[in-house]
Nucleic acid binder design. Structure first.
Lengths: 225, 225
DNA sequence: GATGAAACGGAGCCGACTCTCCGAATCCTA
DNA sequence: TAGGATTCGGAGAGTCGGCTCCGTTTCATC
């Protein structure tokens, strides 16, 4: 919101091209892909990249913001479903579909946590999701031993299939079906072990800076095996 | 198996240290992390890194091989379970646990596909897994509309939680429970949509070079939103 | 169309990373 | 413990990507 004067048409066009190509490039090669290549792909000079985005971090932040805006667009349909169970179905399906179609998102989220850990737009979704879960559980359709965080984690798990590229796109709904069947309230379900997490922890988790090292010990296979 | 002469003790020790630190480093910062930092972390000079691994690709290949060896160690317990269903449980649990504890694996697999797409050790697992699935389905415990590939994909999904770092480690079994409940044969399951994939396709998928671009279009949110 | 302002392109500087080379240090054998 | 071979350490050459600067081009307005 600096000056309300419209930028020139060519500037606006280049800005859009850069965002579009950045999503493709970051999805393919990670958020550290050379920005000179971004320039080439977008058909502009390197200088133009830096005119639009002060540096890589600024570009990542803008991609992050458009992602959050996407989520806001999805919310009404999901939360407004006729039954609580239908909301759950839509939540998993729409969000997983979006994640799979936006494979740059996980890397951008993780990098944002490094750039500015205090930046948490979208925190307002927490209450809505918790309400959705409570509704479906009161209705008797969703098993009562899962939490809103568990659902969000399942969404991320399904979304991780986006890493597998376009070849997998026709198949992820198979896993979605299995997960949804596992979420139904049923007398003979195995109880979910342990306690759920708070929603705050989910933000930190889904934006994890990277795997914490402690878990990785030496492989039992010394070397030349 | 080049020369059977043992390397010097310090050489062997450094080789192990480098592998251990490489797993940590690649998990934290990706497979493109600077090798000079690997040297620092392992407490050796940069020259030593290149004495042990001709280049980054050689290091990645060796990490890949130790991972495949880990899998060979896991196979007997999983395949030798008393019931078909128990095999399925162990397959999901043990492999997911391993993946989560080895967060360098996905990146290393993807990079290996780039380095040498023809290198596919572990292809011999396909028949064993297919047999395990057939056994559990014949037994009536595993739903019949899932394939061996579906299970492998579920393992990768669970394993993707390793990306979330140590903070999540106590929780992934919650999602495992849900998935297992979704895999049980039940009269009122939702049929899994579409056809399953061949196992060959799974190798290419799990080693996907990176998300194929086609799926990522522009966000509907032009820019300054 | 002329004019001023805004945006563009790309050459080039700077810092970071990869990998090499060789004198110094360490290890094994006798 | 002495000798010979192997390995180590780190300085430095070469390369690559991030980012800047400014002459040139494009755009909006009159």
């Amino acid at each position: 919101m600096t000056s309300n004067a419209s930028p020139r048409r060519d500037a606006r066009r280049n800005h859009e091209r850069l965002l579009v190509e950045a999503r493709l490039l970051f999805a393919e090669r990670g958020v550290d892909a050379p920005l000179d290549e971004l320039a080439t792909r977008a058909g502009v000079g390197p200088g133009t990249v830096y005119r639009h985005f002060a540096n890589r971090d600024a570009l990542i932040r803008e991609l992050y913001d458009t992602g959050v805006a996407d989520l806001h667009d999805l919310a009404p349909e999901i939360l407004g479903a006729e039954t609580g169970w239908r909301s759950i179905e839509l939540y998993l399906e729409r969000l997983a579909e979006w994640l799979i179609g936006s494979p740059y998102v996980p890397a951008v989220m993780r990098r944002m946590a490094v750039i500015d850990p205090s930046y948490k737009p979208g925190a307002e979704f927490a209450d809505a999701i918790a309400g959705m879960v409570a509704r479906a559980q009161a209705e008797g359709s969703l098993r009562t031993d899962v939490t809103a965080v568990d659902l969000s984690v399942l969404v991320d798990m399904l979304g991780s299939l986006g890493q597998y590229g376009g070849a997998y796109l026709p198949f992820w709904r198979r896993q979605l079906t299995i997960v949804l069947d596992g979420l139904r309230a049923r007398p003979d379900n195995t109880p979910v072990p342990g306690d759920g997490q708070a929603f705050d922890e989910f933000h930190d988790m889904s934006h994890a800076k990277g795997p914490r090292p402690a878990a990785t010990q030496a492989s039992p296979h010394p070397s030349g095996e």
